[in-house]
Structures are given as structure tokens and as C-alpha cells.
């Protein structure tokens, strides 16, 4: 049916065909908008659902933590390192010139009370959980944490000092609800 096969969009120069082409184009465009609108819910449904997004906080009782001790808590599915730092650890952190750091940050900017360091225990390189929470763990060359996956070393302020990680360990939103409890998130 050669003649009908020719009557697709794009051909004619006379008025009727141009009007017809416009109608087809307009309809196709309208349909495309509809198709796009229809696709969006299918994609958005994979985004976090309302109950996941609902602000979740984790409250931690700090009383049982001794000086020099480190604990791990879970917050929004990730580990959070809470470290009750010794004076030595605090001094070591404060001695460092921020300009020498891969990700320049002072220790003071990373803590609310010098004694308590709260960081998300996820290596900023590719997401492994760094070692250093247990007394028997390696703490790396800077006394903080050591990520065994690709050899990132973090210092006593959780800052990246050596290795492939680009950023310091993330400090989450937290606040001291009371003297002895901290609320994360």
C-alpha cells in the first residue's frame, strides 16, 4: 500500500497536510507530557517513604562510658562512634594545623564538648566501617581509626590523615539533651 505509507508526518506542503502534521505533532507532544507524568510516580516510589523520612533520633546515655572508651550506636541504620576522649587525644587533635589536612577542619569545629567526639562510623572513601572501636583494634597511625578496606587513617578528631578517603568522618546533628545524654539526629 505505497500511497498510504507515504502519508506519514513530514511530507506535504499544501495546507491540509501541514494542518494534519501539526495536529499529529501536538497530539504526540501532549501524549509525551502525559507519559512523563505517568512515569514519575513509578520512579518516586523508590525514594524513602514517609515513615523512613520521619525524623528519627537516637538518644544515648553517656554515663557508663569511661574516659578513653569508645562506643558504637546505631542511628538511621548507620553506626555512630561516640568517643570519650582522653586529654592526650584532645591535645593531639588540637596540635594539628588544619592547613596540613586533606579536608581542613579544626577539632573545635567538630565537637561541642572537647571530651566527647561524635562521628558517623562510615569511611568517606567507599563506605566500610573503620576499625578502632575495640581496644584490640588497630587505630591507625594517628591514634583514631583505621579503615582496613583501602588503608585510610583517621586521627583522634576523626579527620582523614592518610589514605584514599577524601573527607573527614561525618559529624551528625547532635545535641546534649542533658549532662549525661546526647540526642543524635
Amino acid at each position: 500500500m505505497a500511497s498510504s505509507a507515504e502519508t506519514t508526518a513530514g511530507g506535504g506542503h499544501d495546507d491540509g497536510e501541514t494542518r494534519r502534521d501539526f495536529l499529529i505533532l501536538a497530539t504526540a507532544a501532549f501524549g509525551a507530557v502525559g507519559a512523563g507524568a505517568a512515569v514519575w510516580p513509578l520512579i518516586d516510589q523508590m525514594n524513602p517513604a514517609a515513615d523512613v523520612l520521619a525524623v528519627s533520633t537516637t538518644e544515648v546515655n553517656l554515663e557508663p562510658i569511661q574516659t578513653g572508651q569508645r562506643i558504637t550506636v546505631t542511628w538511621r541504620g548507620s553506626p555512630v562512634f561516640i568517643s570519650r576522649r582522653t586529654q592526650k587525644e584532645i591535645d593531639e587533635a588540637r596540635k594539628v594545623n588544619p592547613a596540613d589536612l586533606v579536608d581542613p577542619e579544626t577539632d573545635e569545629a567538630r565537637v561541642k564538648k572537647a571530651e566527647w567526639l561524635v562521628v558517623v562510623g562510615v569511611c568517606t572513601h567507599l563506605g566500610c566501617i573503620p576499625l578502632g572501636q575495640r581496644p584490640t583494634d588497630s587505630k591507625g597511625e594517628y591514634g583514631g581509626w583505621f579503615c582496613p578496606c583501602h588503608g585510610s587513617h583517621y586521627d583522634t578528631s576523626g579527620r582523614i590523615r592518610k589514605g584514599p578517603a577524601p573527607k573527614n568522618l561525618l559529624v551528625p546533628t547532635y545535641a546534649f539533651a542533658t549532662e549525661k545524654t546526647v540526642r543524635i539526629g
Partner: peptide, 20 residues
């Protein structure tokens, strides 16, 4: 409303294409 308009346009296109 959207589908109503689109269907109307599709009907017009259908009539045009089938006119021969």
C-alpha cells in the same frame, strides 16, 4: 481532564488519518 483532551485530539488525528 488531561485524558479527555488527549482522547479528543487522538480522535481528530484518527479521523484525519482514516479520511482516505
Amino acid at each position: 481532564l488531561f485524558i479527555l483532551v488527549l482522547t479528543g485530539m487522538l480522535y481528530a488525528v484518527k479521523r484525519k488519518i482514516w479520511s482516505d
